[in-house]
Design a protein around this nucleic acid. Structure first.
Length: 208
DNA sequence: CTCTCGATGCGCT
DNA sequence: GCGCATCGAGAGA
């Protein structure tokens, strides 16, 4: 079968070492990479898209980070090896996907905030009833729904299995921009830190 | 377009 | 019991 122009996501998953750095480095490095979800009994169906927006959560001293209060049952995955998914429920109805990073002995993670769908759009449209494709995965809760990511994948290894990330890069027309993180006003001085990263111009980020 | 508000489950105090 | 790393519907302009 010939590989079409959207075949980049078929490459190898990013290696463990990619994640073994600070969340800031990983948050920047993930922009343009492909989030790949394999579904079906034999994982024959695939849904994929370019990561266009991320946020870094940088350890116990970051008041916006779930590890701020130390290790708990919910955030335990953040204290494990890098390259795994940390998925949790928020507002009683939305799942959020993070990528665990691991600078020495520090619980860092990167929240995936928006994805530009490239493959399996029909499957995404079935899960998300939206008018425009740009709304399919333009938010952390939206992308989890579009990609069928739930807490059942908490702890999943991103270097092998039904959920992975494949190397990619920003387009020649795109630049990396940064801002304060979204929805962390409660975090005091940490709320203003510019730890959100996104590609611009790109119609699939969560806010313009 | 902007703004407001309710939904809804659970981790943690 | 409180509050949350959100979303989408509805109202108004």
């Amino acid at each position: 079968m010939a590989l079409g122009p959207d075949a980049a996501w078929r490459g190898d998953a990013l290696p463990r070492e990619f994640y073994d750095r600070s969340a800031v480095a990983v948050a920047r490095g993930l922009l343009g990479c492909y989030l790949v979800r394999r579904l079906g009994a034999r994982r024959s169906q695939a849904v994929a898209g370019r990561i266009v927006e991320t946020e870094a959560y940088v350890g116990e001293r970051d008041r916006a980070c779930h590890a701020h209060a130390g290790r708990t049952r919910r955030n335990a995955v953040m204290y494990g090896p890098p390259g795994h998914a940390y998925v949790y429920l928020i507002y009683g109805m939305y799942d959020m996907m993070n990528v665990v990073c691991r600078p020495p002995d520090e619980p860092h993670a990167v929240l995936l905030r928006a994805v530009e769908p490239t493959t399996g759009l029909d499957a995404m449209r079935r899960r998300r009833r939206v008018r425009r494709d740009a709304d399919l995965a333009s938010g952390p809760g939206k992308l989890c729904r579009a990609f069928a990511i739930t807490r059942a994948l908490n702890g999943a290894d991103l270097t092998a299995g039904p959920l992975s990330i494949v190397a990619g890069a920003p387009r020649a027309t795109e630049r990396i921009q940064r801002s304060a993180r979204i929805g962390v006003e409660y975090a005091g001085p940490d709320a203003a830190r510019p730890l959100r990263f996104f590609l611009a111009p790109n119609l699939h980020v969560s806010r313009r």
